[in-house]
């Protein structure tokens, strides 16, 4: 079985993102970029499945400009076998991303397409579900535990009510939640080795994907600020403030 993992290049989660003063977007110049944390977790899980002897190959892929190759190299250094870069002019929205991933799936025939549950830049939380729909295969989203056996995946999902367990036939789309695992650290020799692993670039037009109608981003603004806080000196003062506000 092959596992295809989608890695998105995003602003690192530690960066405090700022909206540009003209409202045209967010400041990304000179900002640290990383693999979307959920995707790193998806890759870690794929590698563990392979290490348990339940998969033969882990392929990482990413869509975007040439710089996404940095994240693909990191994925290779973590242990993926090869990488596919689908070159697109700019960011792709979820439905187009799903259509591209479907093309890769048709080519590679993976048993699992592993995505993050959401990209921490657009916070869309759509691509995996869309891919599963287009592929007409099961989806197990928000996975916090995955067991593979006999052509099936048993997945614990983090849902509002608690933990839901579902069973899906493979091939299927899985999307990772944060508690699925803790990704390994990349070691220096692995970075060297990763340089020799195959990384193919495919142009979007070669895949014959029809881009979906995109949502138009009209303007960006910082979130409304919360009013200035007040420090209290004692529990007594806290309680009386809350009483004054009519909250107790």
């Amino acid at each position: 079985m092959k596992i295809l993992v989608a890695l998105k290049r995003v602003v690192d989660y530690n960066v405090r993102v700022r909206v540009k003063s003209d409202g045209s977007g967010v400041e990304t110049d000179g900002v640290k970029m990383s693999i979307n944390p959920f995707d790193e977790i998806a890759l870690e899980e794929a590698l563990r499945i392979k290490e348990r002897g339940q998969a033969e190959e882990v392929i990482v892929c990413s869509m975007g400009g040439a710089d996404v190759q940095q994240q693909l190299r990191t994925g290779l250094a973590m242990g993926a076998d090869r990488a596919i870069h689908v070159e697109t002019a700019g960011a792709v929205q979820p439905l187009t991303a799903a259509r591209i991933l479907l093309k890769l799936i048709e080519k590679e025939q993976p048993g699992i397409a592993f995505l993050g549950k959401q990209a921490i830049d657009d916070d869309c939380n759509q691509t995996g579900q869309m891919l599963a729909a287009l592929w007409d295969r099961p989806q197990a989203t928000f996975a916090s535990k995955v067991d593979i056996s006999e052509g099936k995946a048993t997945v614990k999902r983090e849902v509002d009510a608690g933990l839901e367990t579902i069973e899906v036939d493979l091939p299927a789309v899985l999307t990772s939640d944060l508690r699925l695992n803790e990704p390994r650290f990349v070691k220096l020799p692995d970075i060297m080795k990763a340089k020799r692993k195959p990384l193919d670039t495919i142009g979007l037009n070669e895949l014959g994907v029809e881009a979906a109608a995109e949502l138009e981003s009209i303007s960006f603004e910082p979130p409304p600020k919360r009013g200035g806080g007040k420090m209290v000196e004692s529990v007594g003062q806290l309680v009386s403030e809350l009483k004054n506000k009519g909250l107790l």
Binding site: V11, V26, D123, C124, E216, I218, P222
Partner: peptide, 30 residues
């Protein structure tokens, strides 16, 4: 179609505000 995730404010029937970057920015999408 693409989906609009997490509408926090309705501007008109096809224009909405939604949070991105963990709420560090609000985008108006049409």
């Amino acid at each position: 179609v693409n989906q609009v995730s997490d509408i926090m404010e309705v501007i008109d029937a096809r224009t909405f505000k939604r949070p991105i970057y963990a709420g560090n920015a609000i985008v108006t999408v049409r």
